[in-house]
């Protein structure tokens, strides 16, 4: 059974049934935190309100420029004849639990199957990529975070478009960026964004910032570490990006059959 769950997707339905069955327990376990959060929210609401309305007007002004840029982008894309990026449905979800296992990096959110969330959906936070959905129940879903040992994210360096992988190293540890040689142009402070390769994540979302580049010209590979942008341990609200109609997104069009491989 363990092997079947690890190697195949045959037990996904079983997982869904069990996840649905235990979700009331997880909601119960979250109750004290929800209560505390409610109390502190209640106190902070009025000042938040003032701050947020200021923020909103600022954002609205920025957005006006964005829509102009978007239109321009669409025109340029049409000129180039390339496909437009289609982003699926966004759903807000609150974090209601974390895995108790210190070896795993997982969250549980309060939206599931019933709200149209599916396996493999990308999960984003305000600061950057959070992870992906690995299990759904009727009322909850489990998120594998980008710093889990079993997770790799295809990224590019924002500054120069250098392709790389960001591999999780376990809860709390910075991501490792392997297979870069000393000829590759990567520096401290570089921002890694999703590349969209592999099709699991839409391109362009920030993932991590490079915090260490070690190795000399004589080494075959550099040891590059990157700290996730999103505060993975302090997340409260996330956005789940579902692909419309359950179809593979346009950015998942394989370049060549040999390249088509599911990451992580």
């Amino acid at each position: 059974m363990v092997i079947a769950d690890h190697r195949t997707t045959a037990l996904d339905t079983v997982r869904t049934v069990f996840a649905t069955a235990v979700s009331p327990l997880i909601y119960t376990a979250h109750l004290p935190y929800a209560g505390l959060a409610l109390l502190s929210q209640w106190r902070a609401t009025s000042e938040d309100n003032a701050r947020l309305s200021r923020e909103l007007s600022r954002q609205a002004i920025a957005l006006q420029r964005l829509s102009a840029l978007e239109a321009e982008n669409a025109r340029l894309r049409a000129l180039l004849g390339s496909a437009e990026r289609v982003v699926g449905r966004e759903r807000f979800a609150a974090v209601i639990g974390v895995t108790p296992d210190p070896r795993r990096s997982q969250l549980i959110v309060d939206r599931g199957d019933g709200q149209g969330i599916g396996l493999g959906d990308a999960v984003l936070g305000a600061e950057g990529l959070v992870g992906q959905i690995i299990e759904t129940g009727a009322l909850s879903a489990r998120v594998l975070l980008i710093d889990d040992l079993a997770h790799s994210t295809p990224v590019v360096v924002l500054r120069n478009g250098l392709r790389a992988l960001a591999q999780g190293q376990g809860p709390g540890a910075p991501l490792s960026v392997p297979y870069l040689s000393s000829q590759d142009d990567i520096r401290l402070g570089d921002v890694l964004v999703t590349s969209g390769l592999g099709g699991r994540f839409p391109p362009g979302y920030p993932v991590a910032r490079v915090v260490a580049v070690e190795g000399s010209t004589s080494d075959a590979f550099l040891a590059v570490r990157a700290e996730p942008m999103a505060p993975l341990r302090r997340l409260q609200d996330v956005v789940v990006l579902s692909v419309a109609g359950g179809k593979r997104p346009p950015w998942d069009r394989p370049l060549a059959p040999a390249l088509r491989r599911d990451e992580s």
């Binding site: 690890h6 069990f18 795993r104």
Partner: peptide, 14 residues
């Protein structure tokens, strides 16, 4: 055990 697997998100059956 299956219920514990489910709440802790470990491999089903562990």
């Amino acid at each position: 055990g299956l219920l514990v697997d489910s709440v802790t998100g470990s491999l089903l059956g562990q």
